[in-house]
Simulated assay, not measured.
Amino acid sequence: MTMSLEDIAWHRSVGQMIDALDQTNFWTQLVRLLEHYVPFDSWVVLLFSSEHKPLVFAECPGQDGSPDQLFQDYLNGLYLLDPFYIASREHSRTGLLRLAEVAPEHFELTEYYQRYFRLNVVADEIQFNSHQPDGRTLCLSLGSRQRFDREQIALLSLIQPWVLSLLRQRLPYELKQVSTPEPPELNDEWGTHLTARELDVGRLMLSGCSSKEIARKLDISVETVKVHKKHIYRKLGIKSQSELFSIFLQAQKDQGAPHPVS
């Protein structure tokens, strides 16, 4: 069997990536390699954990080089509504995940989508996920202003074994750079007057789950879900999911803000 020049170029590039595993510009090199085959507009490398908030190992630079405030909102608590983060907690697996596979039924109708996702990611997202034995998941996320088409997804699926192997081998180098303990996960109890089950229902509502999806995830009836929704709205004195999202977002910002020194 003969190899094409493109095949030879790919294998040579992978060899160069292996040599760069311990280099500070590893992620930039990997992203540039992937961008040569599939176009995308943003990227970030995250470590998801069920016990801590996500760690950011690398991200695409902003246009003016300043921190992206929207992404700071994500790290301050919006990640709790991220379909990929939720999926990593519910059924962690190694592989290539598409937004269409993990997004809840009503995802595009949520305040999270309207006020964060479509502004920061814009249209579509795809992730290379490397699930670790300790339960954490290393993710290379690619965002695009346009939907990834079938040919692009097929190509990413074809090269995913190489990419996932590189992710797995890079993780020890990243963890060596973490000099301080991971901060605890932000408190998800943003409704102080709500029960634990009402908090679960409220978070799933905000992530875009329909009543049927919530019932399935929590193993309760749809009617029970509706009752919980009524209780949430009554206890918080609100009438819409937009108001519910505002309460959630403000609570995460308050929890993430530094406490004044007395």
Rank of each mutant, 00 (worst) to 15 (best):
L142T: 00
L142S: 01
L142M: 05
G143M: 04
G143C: 03
G143F: 02
G143T: 06
G143Y: 06
S144D: 09
S144M: 00
S144N: 15
S144Q: 08
S144C: 11
S144W: 01
R145M: 15
R145P: 04
R145W: 12
Q146F: 10
Q146E: 08
Q146W: 09
F148K: 00
F148L: 02
F148D: 00
D149R: 12
D149W: 10
D149K: 14
E151C: 13
E151W: 14
E151F: 11
Q152R: 09
Q152I: 00
Q152T: 05
I153R: 14
I153P: 03
A154F: 14
A154V: 09
A154Q: 15
A154T: 13
L155G: 00
L155C: 05
L155E: 01
L155K: 02
L156S: 06
L156V: 05
L156A: 01
S157E: 13
S157C: 08
S157H: 15
L158M: 11
L158G: 13
I159V: 12
I159L: 15
I159Y: 08
Q160E: 14
Q160K: 13
Q160V: 00
P161T: 09
W162T: 11
V163A: 05
V163M: 05
L164F: 02
L164A: 06
L164Y: 00
L164I: 07
L164N: 04
S165K: 10
S165N: 09
S165T: 12
L167Y: 06
L167Q: 04
R168V: 02
R168C: 07
R168S: 08
R168A: 11
R168D: 12
R168M: 09
Q169M: 04
Q169C: 04
R170Y: 04
R170A: 02
L171Q: 07
L171H: 01
L171E: 08
L171K: 03
L171W: 06
P172V: 06
P172H: 06
P172T: 05
P172L: 07
Y173S: 01
Y173A: 06
Y173H: 14
Y173L: 04
Y173G: 00
Y173V: 14
E174P: 03
E174R: 06
K176R: 10
K176C: 07
K176I: 10
K176P: 03
Q177A: 13
Q177C: 05
V178I: 10
V178C: 15
V178A: 12
V178M: 09
S179Y: 12
T180C: 09
T180E: 10
T180S: 14
P181W: 04
E182N: 08
E182M: 15
E182G: 01
P183L: 06
P183M: 06
P183H: 03
P184L: 08
P184E: 09
P184M: 07
